[in-house]
């Protein structure tokens, strides 16, 4: 179980939600290795400033697959490259 507090209120929750969490955001993650190559994550989120006291966004589940032999790639964020990529997407749409 991972319990996280102390956010700065500048992060993004997830795609499509439409608002940021506040600095009172409280994230609880429960990781369970359900089999050799599967990892399950259940998340509960609390934010009394954003959603009110006692309100939660709960039981959000993601499952991940073990990737034997995989190496994390070098990912460097370059704003100009992002802008070019997004521009190409918007033109295509």
């Amino acid at each position: 179980m991972v319990d996280t507090i102390g956010f700065n209120g500048l992060i993004q929750l997830t795609q499509g939600v439409g608002h940021r969490p506040s600095d009172a955001f409280h994230l609880i993650e429960r990781y369970t290795r359900v089999s050799y190559d599967r990892l399950e994550l259940v998340m509960d989120m609390y934010d009394e400033k954003a959603w009110g006291e006692g309100a939660s966004w709960s039981d959000l589940t993601k499952t991940f697959a073990l990737m034997p032999g995989e190496r994390l790639q070098e990912f460097i964020c370059v704003p100009s490259e992002y802008a070019e990529f997004d521009g190409a997407l918007e033109e295509g749409i």
């Binding site: 956010f7 500048l10 992060i11 997830t14 795609q15 993650e29 994550l41 992002y82």
Partner: peptide, 15 residues
């Protein structure tokens, strides 16, 4: 969108 200008995406958005 999260991280558009290379600001940290952080958690849980990075997932």
């Amino acid at each position: 969108y999260p991280g558009k200008d290379c600001e940290p995406v952080a958690m849980p958005g990075n997932l």
